[in-house]
Amino acid sequence: MKKTFTLIALFAISSLMSQTKNFLDVSYLETSARVDTLVDPDKIYLNITIQEKDSKGKKSVEEQENKMAQSLKNLGIDIDKQLTIKDLASNYKKYFLRSKEVLKSKQYSLLVYDGLTAGKVMAALENLDIANAYLEKTEYSKMDELELTLKSRAVKKAKRKAEALTEPLGQKVGVAIHIVDNSQPYYPRYNQPQMRMKAMVMEDASTPEPLDIGFEKIKVEATVNVKFRLLQ
Rank of each mutant, 00 (worst) to 15 (best):
M1I: 05
K2P: 10
K2T: 11
F5D: 11
T6F: 03
I8V: 11
I8S: 09
F11W: 05
I13M: 12
S14T: 11
Q19F: 11
Q19P: 02
T20E: 10
K21M: 08
N22E: 12
F23C: 05
D25E: 14
D25P: 01
D25S: 13
V26R: 14
E30Y: 06
T31R: 03
S32P: 02
A33V: 07
A33W: 00
R34Q: 15
V35E: 00
D36R: 06
D40F: 05
P41R: 08
I44F: 07
I44M: 10
N47R: 13
N47W: 09
I48W: 02
T49S: 12
I50H: 00
I50P: 00
Q51G: 08
K53E: 13
D54G: 02
S55N: 12
K58F: 14
S60K: 11
V61C: 10
V61L: 02
V61M: 01
E62I: 13
E63P: 00
Q64H: 08
E65Q: 12
N74P: 02
N74C: 04
I77P: 00
I77R: 01
D80F: 11
Q82K: 10
T84H: 10
K86S: 13
S90N: 12
K93H: 10
K94F: 06
K94G: 09
K94P: 06
Y95V: 08
F96L: 09
S99A: 04
K100M: 12
E101W: 06
L103V: 07
K104M: 08
K104F: 05
K106N: 07
Y108W: 11
S109P: 03
V112N: 03
Y113P: 00
Y113W: 04
T117G: 02
M122R: 06
A123S: 15
A124Y: 05
D129E: 15
A131V: 03
Y134M: 09
L135S: 07
E136P: 08
K137L: 01
T138P: 01
T138D: 01
T138E: 01
Y140L: 03
S141I: 04
K142C: 05
M143K: 02
E145T: 06
L146F: 14
L148Y: 13
T149N: 11
K151N: 09
R153V: 01
R153F: 06
V155Q: 14
K156C: 09
R160V: 09
A162H: 02
A164L: 12
K172W: 05
K172V: 05
V173M: 06
A176H: 15
I177P: 03
V180K: 11
D181S: 08
N182T: 04
P185V: 07
P185I: 03
P185N: 15
P185S: 13
P185L: 09
P188Q: 00
P188K: 00
R189C: 01
Y190L: 09
Q192E: 13
R196I: 08
K198D: 10
M200K: 15
V201W: 06
M202H: 14
M202G: 12
D204N: 15
D204G: 10
S206R: 10
P208A: 15
E209I: 15
P210L: 05
L211T: 07
L211W: 00
G214L: 07
F215Q: 08
E216M: 09
I218D: 04
K219W: 08
V220Y: 13
A222S: 15
T223H: 12
V224F: 04
N225L: 08
V226R: 00
V226A: 04
V226D: 00
L230Y: 07
